[in-house]
Design a protein around this nucleic acid. Structure first.
Lengths: 154, 154
DNA sequence: CTATTTAGTTAAGAGCACGTAACTATATCA
DNA sequence: TGATATAGTTACGTGCTCTTAACTAAATAG
């Protein structure tokens, strides 16, 4: 069966299992490292984007500018984030991860996704080549969907 | 390339993209529905498990019994969770989702994972059959890893 | 140059989630 | 039967995160 809907369903089923599995690990990891989910989301966003302004942090999370500024400030005090002036507009700050921040995000992935290795090993050997290629392709496609130039929301 | 490590890396890459993408949607969705991440994690856990005791809620999240009880109480007041006595031990409560609770969890998935359909559609047609099978297999394997009956590790 | 807008910070206060501690009720052990 | 352990609830205090409002600094319009 390879109808579009069948694929939708299977992908969703897989993601549900995955998200359910990693949710608890994430919550516990963040508690250990004294991070809120919002803070972690911010770090992860900047990890993938490279840099980001304070306002964008707020709008990403649906909180006010002020709240975002306070949150960012704590991350800076924790040595996870750096603030620098944007070149073309000195009102803005460019937020970027420190080395410590990058390490934290990467270790969070380790902590949450270590079980993926068990899963990969549980896959029958003859499936692995196809799985490897498919995963790479999906990641690639998803990244391109992730950055639509100008998609207005309604 | 189909070495185990290659597969580990590709899976991780894919998951990172996926989690990064769905994190923001999740945070915004929960804000709209006045749920904390911990509450949502609890609902999702019960959604998959079927039922659960109050203590387990606490230990899942790394919080005390008291905090778990308070959290559960709010979910009950919101009509998302039901408490009933466990049959064999009347000290325990069996927590289960109400119809409203099940609907909420399912709609949260819709809200977070709607973009998956775009992704599935972006996959070249000749890949879809293989992708469908692989997703189903991974979900199946992951579920079994998720519930090891009595398999001592070490 | 002056007025307005935009990005960000700071202060004060409200609400929520959590922990500790005290309590009730059931189960279990002697 | 009485002592102890377990599951859950309730009361109260603390700390964190958010909001509103007032503020500074830089860009931009007139």
């Amino acid at each position: 069966m390879s109808t579009p809907n069948e694929l939708h369903d299977r992908m969703r089923e897989w993601i549900e299992v995955l998200v359910g599995r990693s949710m608890r690990d994430l919550i516990l990891y963040l508690k250990q490292h004294d991070l809120s989910m919002a803070q972690y989301g911010t770090l992860m966003r900047i990890f993938h984007q490279g840099s980001c302004a304070v306002m964008q942090v707020g709008s990403h999370l649906g909180i006010t500018n002020a709240a975002a500024s306070q949150m960012v400030d704590k991350l800076v005090q924790q040595g996870l984030l750096e603030r620098s002036e944007a070149e073309h507009d000195r009102r803005m700050k460019q937020l970027s991860l420190t080395e410590k921040g990058r390490e934290l995000v990467q270790r969070a992935y380790e902590a949450r996704l270590g079980w993926l290795e068990q899963l990969a090993d549980a896959l029958p050997p003859e499936r692995r080549a196809a799985a490897t290629e498919l995963m790479a392709e999906l990641a690639h496609l998803a990244q391109r969907l992730d950055q639509p130039p100008a998609a207005p929301e309604g």
